[in-house]
């Protein structure tokens, strides 16, 4: 697709290109670990999240607005785990909270209209290599907790309770495959949702630019509706940024619930 990009045309995929910024020849065990624009936005996300959380560390009895905001986020995750897992959910709050906030801030920071001032935000959650690692981490926690708590009994997860014996041999493989698909669906959902929104915005912005370049008549016919649509889609994308972070955290907590309580 990159080859189609000609002068004056907007390549909607270019925004996902990872470019090394520092240490192109940094290697660990033969693997390149260059500091890329993707890594930079991960750092920015972590730092912004850290600064945000500092506001919650005032620990005042009567919270200010900032502390209230931080507390409502921690309370939100705490309640979600309480509802989905129960009392045992408390110990997963740090992980699920980190996951939710990291994805949420990454999604939102990637939507910032910094292109106006010449900086190009990079949404690293639109990369399968990143969402895949996060999904594998969640899945690994599910496996470790499941086998730790239940041993080989964990395999009974693949036989829903009340299944008649002849059906077990049909249902167990299906359940097993669907179980193995969880990390992929988890990673793909976030990656695809973030990528699709960014591509759509980029395509529409291409319409706006090219329409305006083609003359006043075409500009009025194409650019103005496209721009109006962009505003709506941007609002939708902010919603999607929150929803996808929530879905990732929610599904992870549901999977952990399976591992904690089987069925």
């Amino acid at each position: 697709m990159a080859g189609e990009a000609e002068a004056g045309k907007v390549d909607p995929m270019h925004q996902f290109t990872v470019e090394p910024l520092l240490g192109q020849d940094w290697n660990i065990g033969g693997f390149n670990i260059a500091y890329t624009n993707s890594a930079m936005w991960m750092t920015i996300t972590a730092v912004v999240l850290f600064v945000f959380m500092l506001g919650g560390m005032k620990r005042e009895l009567v919270p200010g607005r900032w502390q209230m905001m931080v507390e409502s986020f921690t309370g939100f995750i705490d309640d979600m785990l309480e509802a989905n897992i129960g009392k045992e959910g408390r110990k997963y709050v740090p992980y699920i909270f980190s996951l939710f906030m990291f994805i949420l801030f990454a999604n939102l920071l990637g939507l910032l209209p910094l292109g106006i001032v010449g900086v190009h935000p990079f949404t690293f959650t639109s990369h399968f290599t990143v969402t895949g690692v996060l999904a594998i981490m969640s899945f690994a926690i599910v496996l470790i907790v499941g086998f730790w708590k239940h041993g080989l009994h964990f395999f009974s997860l693949f036989v829903p309770s009340g299944t008649p014996l002849p059906m077990v041999f049909v249902i167990a493989p299906i359940e097993f495959v669907s179980f193995l698909f969880r990390p992929f669906s988890l990673a793909l959902r976030l990656f695809v949702a973030m990528m699709a929104g960014h591509i759509l915005l980029k395509v529409l912005s291409g319409f706006v630019i090219n329409g305006a370049n083609a003359g006043i008549g075409v500009g009025a016919m194409v650019s103005i509706p496209s721009f109006a649509l962009m505003i709506g889609i941007s609002a939708l994308e902010i919603l999607v940024a929150g929803i996808q972070a929530y879905v990732f955290a929610l599904l992870t907590s549901l999977y952990i619930n399976d591992a904690e309580h089987l069925h």
Binding site: N32, T36, M101, T129
Partner: peptide
């Protein structure tokens, strides 16, 4: 890029966690 992505994700997410 996968090795770089993995490395920096582990560093930043590790910090966050």
């Amino acid at each position: 890029i996968w090795s770089s992505q993995l490395f920096w994700l582990l560093i930043t997410f590790g910090f966050v966690f």
